[in-house]
Design a protein around this nucleic acid. Structure first.
Lengths: 204, 204
DNA sequence: GAGTGTGAACGTCTTCACAGCT
DNA sequence: AGCTGTGAAGACGTTCACACTC
């Protein structure tokens, strides 16, 4: 029985629950009520309970609360936190280089195994090799990678994305402002920091 | 008559319309139908028309379409694209340094006027000065800045955010995984690349 | 009493369908 | 005929209220 979370907002709430629960677990808290956990996660208590309802194995005890550990395990399993995935990075400008140095991906089950750029450079203090773009095809033919992070200039985004999809990538984190056109099973997440800033301008 | 867009999804659609319209404008297209524009922006045609309905000055001609230029101007005005804002950056790790080098903010009306870090470094090819954290207070007392980008380590996020809010910042782009607690008029946008990656894992 | 589980109400966002204008 | 503007319907997400359990 597998639950698939399609809504992004809901998925992000689940991930927040996971992070807060694992912090509570490290702090030695073993039981927590929906009221308390929801306050920590900044959501409503009934929403938290509604969110947990469809999850297999995530049930609490009345007048007690939820077991931190078992709730954590159920959520982690549902969100595939027990999974490890290999990722390639395409585009190693200052942004891409920062992603290579960032430890947060690996800490959460995403390992950048290779990077590609028109102008390969060596990234200090890192095991990740930066290859030329011409090496992309042969690399992906030899490795079963599903995830790619797209950090190329906007003008190159569409072509590179098409190429990645053709070579078998079907999960794409798009850090460019370009709107990508991908065939059906491929999923894209767009992150646009300028949009985020502009959104903050409302009624300022 | 000022329209405030509270929904993030809607705001992002407006920003997409703006970007696509300005590209069409540069290409010399002067009129476009909701059907064609919606295809470019990857939304439904009736949704596009619904989105445009409440906007003062954004009306199309039946059997013709919308004037690219006037629609663009109306949207830009509503989304404050004709506005310039000064921004400070707090936390100059590899990520923060990449943001300083990134040209996209300035191109869209956000100018990073100063950066702060525990360990100030000099960023090459950049006019942005990196100050020590102790310079934050005096700097903000001398400048009327409302926007800050938070790119510090997670463990420092809460304290730094509190300090920024106390010093008058009320728009915060939070690039850390920490959940910030801010008083009422302050707005926060959270960007979490790990969450985005994890969201891509659904049914993979 | 304290806290979960859940149906029902409520609100918001999206899609449909079509009237009306050019 | 072609396209906009919009009410109505539908889908989705959130909040409320309370029965039930420990």
């Amino acid at each position: 029985m597998v639950v698939v979370v399609e809504s992004k907002q809901l998925a992000f709430r689940y991930l927040t629950y996971i992070n807060m629960l694992s912090r509570l677990d490290r702090q030695g808290v073993s039981v927590i009520s929906s009221h308390n956990l929801s306050a920590i996660c900044k959501v409503g208590a009934s929403q938290l309970r509604k969110d947990l309802m469809p999850i297999p194995g995530a049930s609490g005890k009345q007048s007690v609360g939820y077991s931190v550990k078992s709730l954590l395990v159920s959520l982690q399993h549902m969100m595939h936190r027990d999974q490890n995935d290999e990722v390639i990075l395409v585009g190693v400008g200052s942004f891409g280089a920062a992603l290579i140095k960032y430890r947060g991906f690996e800490a959460n089950g995403f390992k950048i195994i290779a990077a590609f750029d028109l102008h390969p450079t060596i990234i200090e203090n890192s095991e990740v090799t930066v290859y030329g773009m011409d090496a992309l095809e042969s690399f992906l033919c030899g490795h079963e990678v599903k995830f790619a992070i797209l950090a190329v200039p906007e003008s190159a985004a569409k072509n590179v994305a098409d190429q990645l999809v053709r070579l078998g990538i079907n999960r794409l984190l798009n850090l460019t402002p370009a709107l990508l056109n991908v065939p059906d099973p491929v999923k894209v997440s767009n992150v646009n920091l300028v949009y985020e800033m502009e959104y903050l301008r409302r009624q300022s």
